[in-house]
Design a protein around this nucleic acid. Structure first.
Lengths: 169, 169
DNA sequence: CGAAGATGCAGGCATATGCCTGCGTTTAAC
DNA sequence: GTTAAACGCAGGCATATGCCTGCATCTTCG
């Protein structure tokens, strides 16, 4: 902390910073902060939370196509492709061509990937437990619902027309 | 959407995807989705929401040091440095050495940057208004509080010891 | 004043993501 | 069956961020 350099009062900082009206900026800040926490806990297994989530999702979907995976993760298809690379390179995933449709590539969890998951899941569980302990179980549940609503494609539509989506989408 | 390719029932997808128990994954998904919405609205001015937020914050802090800015944005210092580059390159910001401490670099908004802000703020306002309309004013307010709590450094401490922070930090 | 530490960044390296464009497949019209 | 559209990705390009290491400065303590 620099000595007398801060040209702004705490009041200004508090109102301008911690209570920014921008929902997007607020989301990013929180994500950066929380992301680091989870990443630190997952570090011992060498996976980032993003990668862990990806492996978990792949396993849950059972060799999904890239498109299905992208949709599930609420990610851009090409972005997903980039993110998959390190995991494929390290042998946790394999991209296998679909038998029926040769355009389609399916994402398959390898044995190595499954093993890595066995290793990362307890770590993730620890992080999640810490999170719930720190944030409160109730609030965590509420948060999940809220974030799920924001991640739903239906929200995009509601946002586009500036109307309430409620349970739409 | 592929025709008969989906090997999973909607129930499984719904439970495995939209209700993932991982708070971090949920945050990221929501952030990706919302980020795109804001970015689309801001697109006409050529700024991303991240950049817009950065300019807004710089103006609010009034030529802060990189460290102050990083702390305010809840960002890694070097990450901030990288993010500032495009903005400096485009002339919206300037990095000026501090008179008193030659280690310190201050981030100054240029006239061009201020002008760009005048252009981007109405766009951002539109996005924010749409967000509040779509999500609900009350819920938006609640969301801001929740996200602010998650972005607070105090949360890191609480997470570290797995205890409730409440109003700490 | 001189050396050890603390500070504030800059750079290199790596992942995370998005957009836009191009290519190979499939499917749908004729 | 050709051919034109639609589809599913891959790649290039650009920003967003983080970590770790090195450098230039301050600061502090003899």
């Amino acid at each position: 902390m620099a000595k007398g350099v801060r040209a702004r009062t705490d009041v200004e900082v508090a109102s301008g910073t911690h209570r920014s009206r921008c929902s997007n900026a607020a989301l990013r800040k929180a994500t950066r902060n929380i992301g680091q926490l989870y990443d630190e806990v997952l570090a011992p297994c060498g996976l980032r939370t993003t990668q862990h989530s990806l492996l978990v999702t792949v396993r849950a979907l059972g060799t999904p196509t890239m498109g299905q995976l992208a949709e599930t993760m609420v990610m851009d298809l090409s972005g997903l492709g980039h993110t998959l690379k390190p995991l494929a390179r390290d042998g946790y995933l394999r991209l296998v061509p679909d038998a029926a449709d040769r355009r389609v590539r399916r994402v398959a969890l390898t044995d190595l990937g499954a093993a890595k998951l066995e290793q990362s899941i307890p770590l993730w569980q620890d992080a999640q437990t810490r999170f719930e302990a720190a944030f409160g179980r109730e609030r965590t549940d509420a948060l999940r619902d809220v974030l799920a609503a924001l991640a739903r494609p239906g929200f995009r539509a509601a946002f586009a027309r500036g109307a309430r989506p409620d349970e739409a989408g």
